[in-house]
């Protein structure tokens, strides 16, 4: 499997007046055209890892890495202008809640068309046609009507499908999905995931799926990284997640309720201060 993205020793720091918060502490991994899950609790650095790949860490945050390469292109060496040509066009990102990630005063169709026009030299009419096709591809029944709708007029599930359409319309090579279904109803979660999965497979894209939902990641991804306190503590194939050995992963698994094996009292995850000090592992393949 050829390497699409390789990340080596990635750090994200936030400099405050009194202290420095290290959100990501030396993460290394590679990604092919596969579906890679990143799991971890809040604050484990998984979202920041996603944003750092796009070089979207804003001051007072800063990022550094020994290597950040997309298909042989050194992303660290690019100017901001060159980086903009990568964003959307080669790497895209879907965020958690469409209620906040769509611009409330712009028609959703225009937002999709804009994403297309940012990288393709086409006129308005052509971008509109492409946006309508994309709305159709994410299984929106009445694309013409939805094109002219504003974000507050669509439901959460539809909003997230619009986000997917917007982020996939320039046909990127890599999609980062940052908790794409966490804000949705359980009933529409699977539907949205299925649509995303289908498109990612069809276009042969790489996917980084960031989530705190172990079961979801295990069933949806090929490979899983487990992050804790800014480091990768464990990596394994998704279907072997239940064989994970790191005590943190074991703790996470043990705290999940299982329908076929009810327990009177769910285990509470005990965090060991020593985990923080351990070096992370290199998840390159």
């Amino acid at each position: 499997m050829s390497t699409l993205l390789s990340v080596e020793d990635l750090w994200v720091r936030f400099r405050g007046p009194n202290r420095v918060v290290e959100a990501v502490r030396g993460v290394s991994f590679t990604l092919g055209r596969e579906r890679l899950g990143i799991v971890g609790e809040s604050g484990s650095g998984k979202s920041m890892t996603g944003r750092a790949i796009l070089r979207l860490i804003r001051p007072p945050g800063e990022m550094s890495a020994r290597r950040l390469e997309l298909d042989g292109t050194d992303l660290l060496a690019l100017t901001e202008r060159q980086m903009r040509a990568i964003r959307g066009h080669r790497i895209s990102m879907i965020m958690q809640d469409p209620k906040f990630s769509l611009n409330p005063v712009v028609r959703v169709g225009e937002q999709i068309a804009e994403a297309y026009r940012a990288h393709a030299r086409v006129d308005r009419r052509e971008a509109r046609v492409r946006a309508l096709e994309m709305l159709h591809a994410v299984q929106i029944r009445d694309p013409e009507r939805v094109y002219d709708a504003y974000p507050h007029e669509v439901s959460g599930g539809m909003g997230q499908r619009i986000m997917i359409a917007m982020m996939l319309v320039p046909e990127p090579d890599l999609l980062i999905a940052d908790e794409p279904t966490s804000a949705l109803d359980v009933t529409v979660q699977m539907q949205v995931l299925a649509i995303m999965d289908k498109l990612v497979r069809e276009k042969g894209m790489g996917l980084i799926f960031i989530s705190h939902d172990l079961n979801l990641v295990a069933s949806f991804c090929d490979r899983v990284l487990i992050m804790y306190a800014g480091r990768i503590v464990e990596t394994c194939e998704a279907k072997r997640l239940h064989e994970a050995r790191h005590p943190y992963t074991r703790g996470l698994l043990a705290s999940l309720p299982q329908i076929d094996k009810p327990v009177p009292r769910l285990a509470v995850l005990e965090r060991d201060a020593a985990w923080r000090k351990q070096g992370g592992i290199d998840a390159s393949v």
Binding site: R87, G88, V105, M166, P170
Partner: peptide, 28 residues
């Protein structure tokens, strides 16, 4: 706001992010 990150993810220029996205909401 998050939609500003979305606009940046699309690869829009800072000018477009500010004037096409943020300014329209500031106008309200």
């Amino acid at each position: 706001q998050e939609y500003i990150i979305t606009a940046r993810v699309k690869g829009l220029s800072e000018w477009a992010v500010i004037w096409r996205h943020a300014a329209r909401n500031v106008l309200v």
